[in-house]
């Protein structure tokens, strides 16, 4: 079973990575999305936009709580990923196979994909918190994950595991409310004290 899954994973990897090197524009775009900074920082800024995007103070309070839960989801998924890395040591595709490598050679283990875990943590947490703008977080997360396989630094299975890990973390953070409740409560209290109708101050 495991070897069948690994074969399937490698077949998918070859199919996606085989697309690299055929079109200069596509390769440049994938290199950009594969970048360690572009998508993660953009998602961070989207979280800031999420906090500020409301129309009223009531919206702001919900968005502030959503942003705090995103932070906790990212932290929890990173902790779970570190725990998995202690036990699972899967080498990068370029170590064992001939690949079209469009990116530098990362030195850490391949499974689960660190960028996929982080970016999908933003997406799933936003999905569980916010019913209107969660989809903003999907394109960057998907494109970065796809680009990591396209550029030859991750197997599709690594990316899928990262996304599943992110989903579990987001679910846990939203289900186990006590994890984030103290911080949400403190933030909302501060917001209330600072913004409540000091109407005529000069």
């Amino acid at each position: 079973m495991t070897s069948w899954l690994l074969d399937l994973d490698y077949t998918l990897f070859r199919w996606i990575n085989g697309l690299a090197g055929r079109n200069v524009l596509a390769d440049s775009a994938m290199r950009a999305f594969c970048n360690d900074h572009l998508v993660p920082f953009t998602l961070g800024f989207l979280a800031l936009v999420l906090v500020l995007k409301g129309r009223h103070r009531a919206d702001d309070r919900l968005n502030l709580a959503a942003a705090i839960r995103i932070f906790f989801t990212v932290a929890l998924s990173a902790a779970l990923m570190q725990a998995i890395i202690v036990f699972v040591h899967r080498p990068r595709p370029f170590v064992d196979h001939e690949v079209n490598l469009l990116f530098y050679k990362p030195v850490d283990w391949s499974f689960p994909s660190n960028p996929a875990t982080a970016t999908f943590s933003f997406f799933f947490s936003a999905r569980l918190s916010d019913r209107r703008t969660w989809w903003w977080f999907f394109p960057p997360a998907f494109l970065m994950s796809f680009a990591r396989v396209y550029c030859g630094v991750h197997y599709p299975g690594d990316v899928l595991a990262g996304a599943l890990l992110a989903l579990c973390s987001a679910y846990l953070v939203h289900r186990l409310d006590f994890l984030s409740r103290p911080f949400v409560s403190l933030a909302l209290r501060l917001e209330s004290r600072l913004r409540s109708a000091l109407s005529m101050r000069e």
Partner: peptide, 28 residues
Amino acid sequence: APVIPDRRAGVLGDALGSNTPWDILRSI
């Protein structure tokens, strides 16, 4: 300009509209 509560949202106005953070800190 009496202060009117937004009962549904449970909030009272928004100080950021016409106060600088320094005003708010001083007031608090």
